[in-house]
Amino acid sequence: MEERDRRAVLLLRHLDAAYNLARHLMRDPTQAEDVVQDAMLKALAGAATFRGGDPRAWLLRIVRNTAYDTLSAGKRRGEELLEDDLADPSADAETLLSQRQNVALAADALAALPLEWREALVLRELEGLSYREIAEITQTPIGTVMSRLSRARQAMLTARDSTP
C-alpha cells in the first residue's frame, strides 16, 4: 500500500469524528462538509507535519483550525450569524444565555454556547476525549480545557433551569 493511501485509511477511520466536530462548530451542514474536505486535503498533503501520535487528534486539530479560519473569514465578510462565535467568551454564562431565545432544547443550548466552550463540550461528551487530548486539539492548556468545560456545563444547566 502506498504511504499516502495508508495515511488516508488511518484518517478515514476518523471521518465521522471530523465531520461531527465541524458540524457542531459551523452549525451548518454545507459549511461542515467544506471544512472536512479542506481539512482532509490539508492532512494528506501536510503529512510531513505528522510525527506519529494519535491520528484522530491530529485530524481534529486540522479540522478545528480550518473551521476557525472559515469562521474568521466569514466574520471579515460581515456575516452576522457568526459574530458571537469569535467574541471572547468572558461574559458571565447566565447573562449570556438569558439573552438568547429558544434554548429550551439541549441542542439549541449547545448551539448557543460560545465556540470555544462548545468545542470542548463536543470533544468531551460526544467524542469522549480526555483533557489532554482536547488540549492537544485546541492548542490550549489543560487547565483552560477544564474551565471551559465547567463553564459550558454551567451555562447548559442555567439554560435548562431558566426554561419554564
Binding site: 471530523a18 465531520y19 461531527n20 457542531h24 472536512v36 441542542a107 449547545l110 447548559m156
Partner: peptide, 11 residues
Amino acid sequence: LATDIAYHRVP
C-alpha cells in the same frame, strides 16, 4: 447530552 445531542456522521 447523550440522548439529545446528535452525533453527525459524515454524509
